[in-house]
Design a protein around this nucleic acid. Structure first.
Length: 110
DNA sequence: ACAATGACATACG
DNA sequence: GCGTATGCCATTG
């Protein structure tokens, strides 16, 4: 849990923090932005470790826009509520019109 | 240093 | 179209 070992995680945290309000992205997109296209799992793993930090992990979902990580939040639908609170429509643990709110860091940031 | 874990992604049946 | 299986790779024990 040393800060030094969080090198990769820190990158994920920063990218996650840069997700605009009312937007969402996928693990693969973040991983690709970091140059680790095949490390999508690592991004998710970092999110798990990001619990307790100021990282909007609720804005990060899988490629399908499915709230796969909602189980890691406190409540059963806390993640969904947070997204809906930002104007994102979520039905059955899945973001509606995900393509519209999808935020690609490699595309938006550059 | 080895084995196991995981909030994904893709391929196959 | 959906469930199962495999690959991927950094972190953790």
């Amino acid at each position: 849990m040393k800060p030094e070992t969080e090198s990769f995680f820190e990158c994920v945290y920063e990218v996650a923090k840069r997700i605009p309000y009312g937007r969402a992205t996928s693990y693969g997109a973040i991983a690709k932005y970091l140059g680790a296209t095949r490390s999508a799992r690592i991004v998710g793993y970092a999110m798990n470790s990001s619990f307790g930090k100021d990282v909007p992990a609720h804005r990060v979902v899988n490629r399908k826009g499915l709230l796969t990580g909602k189980h890691h939040f406190e409540g059963t639908n806390l993640m969904q509520q947070l997204l809906e609170s930002e104007g994102i429509k979520v039905v059955d643990n899945q973001i509606q019109n995900f393509e519209a709110i999808f935020w690609d860091p490699s595309k938006e940031l550059g």
